[in-house]
């Protein structure tokens, strides 16, 4: 039996953080030796993003029940403890945003006129409907929660992650397709009966500050809903420090 307190899971913005953590994977040196162990592949694929700062504009296109909406967000992160997200579009939502500091999370909207601290129990719901739930893609606890096995496939590895019996995970298994240079290409999430719940596909890898970043992430779920994330203006290793992540900044005062 394992109890997990909110702290490790609260990373609401981990959605984005996680995505970027996957992106930086390309950093890892390609290893010419024999096939590495499954855990090594996973660790390399996840990369070493901790402590890194990141800034980008992300457009999220959500298709729900046949209707498509586009959200454009500006994102700053610092390690796993700090994140700031601001909505640029749609117009009626512009200026609102989220701030995460440690395990606390605030929401701000000009309509509401102030910051609201969100209860931690809510976390894990999807930010824009459909698509990946925030904590689903926050792969931060993967190796803790899952048994990982790997097999070599054409052009890379197929990792199969089966949750430990007592892990607080509602999925049956995850399948990660990783290229031979340790970039994640696809994550397929299965329910406990072997049905596919959703598929996340990573593509259009570009090199930013020497790091390989997939700029297009498509997540499709079983009922045909889809989100497409496009990352532009990505920057790594800015001079951000924790004092950047304040409520004042969330509220646009600075």
């Amino acid at each position: 039996m394992r109890i997990r307190t909110a702290r490790r899971r609260t990373a609401v913005l981990a959605l984005l953080v996680a995505v970027f953590s996957l992106a930086v994977a390309g950093l890892a040196a390609q290893s010419p030796e024999a096939m590495p162990t499954a855990t090594e592949i996973l660790d390399r694929a996840r990369g070493a993003w901790q402590g890194d700062s990141f800034h980008a504009v992300v457009s999220v296109e959500v298709t729900l029940a046949g209707q498509t909406k586009v959200h454009v967000l500006e994102v700053w992160t610092l390690g796993s403890d700090y994140a700031l997200l601001r909505v640029l579009e749609p117009k009626d939502d512009a200026g609102s945003g989220y701030l995460q500091v440690g395990d606390k999370l605030w929401y701000y909207s000009p309509l509401v006129g102030g910051s609201i601290e969100l209860p931690s129990m809510a976390i894990g719901d999807t930010l824009f409907g459909s698509g990946p739930s925030i904590e689903d893609l926050a792969l931060g606890t993967l190796s803790e929660d899952y048994d990982v096995t790997a097999e070599a496939i054409d052009g890379g590895y197929l990792l199969t992650l089966v949750p430990h019996p007592d892990a607080p995970v509602v999925y049956g298994k995850l399948e990660l397709t990783v290229t031979s240079d340790y970039a994640i290409e696809r994550i397929v999430t299965y329910d406990q009966r072997g049905g596919v719940l959703r598929t996340a596909t990573f593509s259009e890898v570009v090199e930013v500050d020497g790091q390989k970043l997939p700029t297009r992430i498509v997540v499709e779920d079983a009922s045909g809903n889809r989100t497409i994330q496009r990352i532009t203006n990505a920057e790594y290793n800015l001079n951000l420090d924790p004092s950047f992540f304040t409520l004042e900044r969330l509220e646009g005062a600075e």
């Binding site: 039996m1 394992r2 109890i3 997990r4 307190t5 909110a6 702290r7 899971r9 609260t10 395990d103 209860p119 931690s120 129990m121 976390i123 949750p163 019996p165 007592d166 892990a167 607080p168 995970v169 509602v170 406990q192 009966r193």
Partner: peptide, 21 residues
């Protein structure tokens, strides 16, 4: 949910939200 499958319960504990399978 069917018998034999896993669910996660969340509750507000003394130090934040806790979850367990």
């Amino acid at each position: 949910v069917r018998v034999g499958e896993r669910v996660v319960l969340l509750a507000s504990g003394a130090d934040g939200t806790t979850s367990q399978a």
